[in-house]
């Protein structure tokens, strides 16, 4: 799904933030990416959805070299990768339901209203379907972002500190949704510095823990 070989990255081609990383992300896998703030977790995720290009090394997503992707190729890749940010952005002039259906709309696909209703119910946002994004709380925004990330039935879900602004109960609810997605066959990669979240997940799912330390990517599952 995602293959990295001796991959390095530095902003503006300058000093490397990530170096010599090798990773193979398999379909249906569940990974956490941990590390201190500023270690490069967000940068790593941005590389995964081709928002950044590696400075050195090889990287392919779904069998395609990311450097060779055209802009339309990148758009196609992003339809196969659902991304949930710590501070998700929406189109504030469109209701929540339409924001969730946005990936379908921009790819010219018809929106199945029943399926959209089910999705809203799954993320417990049925009551907010007609609300505008600025009216949502932090947890509701995260769940709306998750619904938008999965509406195209992507193969991989990337979540960048999805529980960073949420209380514990809401964090658990969101984690539960991500675990459900993984059980339905999606690969999940969550960047977080919250080790309690990692422990809670490991009780329910076979998750591997990656850690960025000293610019390198390490497998840290045994330590937890």
């Amino acid at each position: 799904m995602i293959e990295m070989q001796n991959l390095s990255f530095g902003y503006g081609g300058g000093e490397a933030l990530l170096a010599d990383m090798t990773l193979s992300l398999q379909p249906g896998s569940f990974h956490f990416l941990t590390g201190p703030s500023g270690a490069g977790k967000t940068t790593f995720l941005r590389l995964c959805y081709a928002d950044l290009l590696p400075s050195a090394g090889r990287m392919s997503t779904f069998g395609q070299d990311v450097r060779a992707l055209s802009r339309d190729g990148i758009a196609g890749l992003r339809r196969r990768v659902g991304v949930v940010h710590q501070d998700p952005q929406f189109l504030d002039h469109m209701p929540v339901a339409e924001n969730i259906a946005l990936p379908l709309m921009i790819s010219g696909q018809a929106v199945d209203m029943a399926a959209l209703g089910d999705l809203l119910a799954w993320v417990q946002l049925s009551r907010h379907a007609r609300a505008m994004p600025p009216e949502l709380s932090g947890g509701e925004r995260q769940r709306a972002a998750l619904a938008r990330a999965v509406i195209m039935a992507p193969d991989l879900i990337l979540a960048d500190e999805p529980t960073g602004n949420l209380d514990w109960d809401m964090s658990m609810r969101l984690l539960q949704l991500l675990i459900e997605l993984n059980r339905s066959g999606k690969a999940v990669l969550i960047a977080t510095h919250d080790l309690n979240l990692v422990r809670a997940a490991k009780q329910q799912v076979q998750a591997r823990v990656l850690r960025i330390a000293g610019m390198k990517l390490q497998l840290a599952g045994a330590d937890l």
Partner: peptide
């Protein structure tokens, strides 16, 4: 600008 960034992020093609 923010709208365009969101659209690209969710997989919108330039033409769209």
């Amino acid at each position: 600008g923010q709208v365009i960034r969101v659209l690209r992020l969710v997989g919108a093609r330039d033409i769209t």
